[in-house]
Simulated scan of single mutants.
Amino acid sequence: MRALFIGGTGTISSAITKQLLEQGCELYLLNRGTRNEALPVGAKILQADINDESKVASLIADLTFDVVADFIAFEPAQLERDYRLFKDKTKQFLFISSASAYQTPLSDYRITEGTPLSNPYWAYSRNKIACEEYLIKQYREHGFPITIVRPSHTYDERSIPLGVHGSKGSWQVAKRMLENKPVIIHGDGTSLWTMTHNTDFAKGFIGLMGNLHAIGESVHITSDETLTWNQIYEAIAAALGVKLQAVHVSSEFLDACSKEDFRGGLLGDKANSVVFDNAKLKRLVPEFVATTRFDQGIKQTVANLLAHPELQKEDHEFDQWCDQVIQVLDTAIQQMNAARI
């Protein structure tokens, strides 16, 4: 199989590229070359910015592909560019959308590919929906061989997956745990969530590549494991070897008092209970099974982070904000208790 990935070094795509190369795939990566240390050995690099359409067209002039996958498109204009570039160059075009495009709030906590797409809270999700609509139009009207893939919360060894963190990533929350400081969990921590290790996601994705039954279809790829946020944070604390000091805070309150985009990422995504039905994926890829349980996967992530200080990006502003939120809540409790006397 000859495949071209636009991107190829991110959380999701890195595991796919690794497994494909191990399987002997002829893999091309269209990449700007700004992270050469992350480029996998064995891949053929087409160095260019995908937004430089004329340069990309010249690089692929003599090439055709079994599969082209775009991991970094977020707006319809980017898919319009992809269509112009690859409409006569590939047997299958895979677009990585997002499970956050599903109806929010949900009318049924069980999510299938038939769940409506609607998210009034997050422009990111609405843009992904618009991208999907554009591609479906090209499939229906011009036979462009699309497959839409919707990941949910997928993680790897480079970052701890969390519900609430700052703009510099999740390490600061782990640092608070290691320092025995309280950490914020949104809501009461009992809403349901699904974490998927990127190696498991890769197995499902590769099973869709070159799969004629996947043409024209939309498919989500997630683990079948359902966790509460309390369980997620407890597993992280256990992997760090500490006792969790949790403070539960309303998601609406967090959104109202933060500079971060908690409206989209929290109210429009992680604050909602989600349980994914992967029956469609398993029909298309009968061998698919997610084998990395979260408590096992997070131990690998934590071990890697502790072994690589360069991944430990501190976020003092977020740390101070957490302290302020917790202090405000403590003060409010004291004032309410005093008022009852």
Rank of each mutant, 00 (worst) to 15 (best):
A3Y: 14
L4K: 12
T11R: 09
Y28G: 05
R32N: 07
T34R: 14
R35G: 07
E37A: 14
P40F: 10
D49F: 10
N51D: 14
D52E: 13
D52C: 06
D52G: 10
L59Y: 05
D62Q: 12
A69Q: 13
F71G: 06
E75G: 01
P76M: 09
Q78K: 08
L79D: 10
L85T: 15
T90Y: 07
Q92P: 13
I96P: 12
A99Y: 09
S107G: 10
Y109D: 08
I111K: 07
T112Y: 05
G114F: 02
T115A: 03
P116Q: 04
L117V: 02
S118T: 00
N119A: 02
N119G: 00
P120E: 00
Y121F: 14
W122N: 02
W122L: 01
K128T: 06
I129P: 08
A130H: 03
L135G: 02
Q138L: 14
Y139S: 04
Y139K: 03
Y139W: 09
R140H: 08
E141D: 14
V149A: 04
P151C: 09
S152T: 15
S152V: 13
D156G: 15
E157A: 03
R158S: 09
H165L: 06
G166M: 10
A174H: 02
A174S: 06
M177P: 02
L178F: 07
E179Y: 13
N180M: 00
K181H: 02
V183T: 11
V183D: 11
H186L: 12
G189E: 03
T190S: 13
M195A: 12
H197E: 15
F201W: 13
K203F: 06
K203M: 14
G207A: 08
M209C: 15
G210V: 07
G210K: 08
L212T: 15
S218H: 08
I221E: 06
T226F: 07
T226R: 08
L227Q: 04
E234Y: 01
A235R: 03
I236Q: 00
I236F: 00
A237Q: 01
V249R: 02
V249L: 02
S250H: 02
D255C: 07
D255Q: 06
K259R: 10
E260G: 01
D261G: 08
L267I: 05
K270T: 05
A271S: 14
V274S: 11
V274I: 02
F276S: 01
F276M: 04
R283H: 07
L284E: 09
V285M: 03
V302G: 05
F318W: 15
D319C: 12
Q320D: 15
C322H: 11
C322M: 07
D323N: 11
D323L: 08
I326P: 03
I326Y: 04
V328E: 10
T331S: 11
A339M: 11
